[in-house]
């Protein structure tokens, strides 16, 4: 088996996403903008960003760059790496409403429930970064910092960076337009092995409060 590969021009149409199966390797060209706790929390509190997110394209990256701002206002951007996305689940309805995003890029995906409830109705899919530390490869794919919003309010790590990218990747299709998840598929595929390695091991004398004994459960 060889992995399938695709290159997408941003912004995307939902029809571009139609042929993408989970596990496909994806590279991007165009504009992506970053956003994490800082952005989502402010939107949740009813504070709108200083720029119309939908005008920035439709690819939101859960990420912040290793970057510095020179005294002359220029940006020195080294590596970029995603942050874990499951934390932003509760912000999704409002975020999709104002951003019209079709691609969410991040680390580790979200739940199939999130995909069904929020991604599928918006014709959006989730792309996960690989590894997760391909910060140098992703950094190479950034051709220019077009703009940075909320830099002063949120700091370098949480600001909204608008990035022009070329051959930006690799990413893997984590959720498709039907809401299927590569990670949850992997969870199901690895469950038998997990049961096998635990076989015969006794539980410790002291349990933890609320401890689950179901290994099908995730901690996220």
């Amino acid at each position: 088996m060889t992995l399938k590969s695709a290159r997408l021009r941003l912004p995307v149409e939902t029809s571009d996403l139609e042929p993408l199966e989970i596990g496909t390797v994806v590279y991007l060209d165009g504009i992506v903008y970053t956003g994490r706790e800082g952005l989502y929390k402010k939107i949740d509190e009813g504070v709108m960003p200083p720029v119309d997110l939908a005008s920035l394209g439709n690819a939101n990256f859960h990420c912040s760059p290793a970057a510095s701002v020179g005294d002359d206002g220029t940006y020195n951007l080294g590596a970029v790496t995603a942050t874990a996305s499951f934390r932003f689940s509760r912000f999704l309805p409002k975020f999709f409403e104002i951003s019209k995003a079709k691609l969410i890029l991040g680390k580790g995906g979200m739940s199939e429930q999130d995909y069904r409830d929020h991604f599928v109705p918006n014709g959006a899919i989730y792309l996960t970064t690989v590894g997760y530390g391909t910060g140098a490869l992703l950094g190479r794919g950034i051709k220019r910092v077009r703009d940075v919003h909320w830099l002063k309010e949120l700091g370098i790590a949480q600001a909204v960076w608008v990035l022009e990218v070329e051959n930006f990747g690799p990413f893997l299709v984590e959720s498709d337009l039907r809401g299927r998840s590569l990670f949850e598929q992997s969870n199901r595929e690895t469950l038998d092995g997990i049961e096998r390695v635990y076989a015969g091991l006794k539980f410790p004398a002291l349990r933890r409060y609320g401890e689950t004994v179901n290994r099908d459960d995730e901690v996220i």
């Binding site: 990420c63 760059p65 290793a66 590596a79 970029v80 790496t81 997760y132 530390g133 910060g135």
Partner: peptide, 10 residues
């Protein structure tokens, strides 16, 4: 090669 951080979460 690029002398850039290998991961942005340093």
């Amino acid at each position: 090669q690029d002398r850039r951080a290998m991961c942005a979460d340093t």
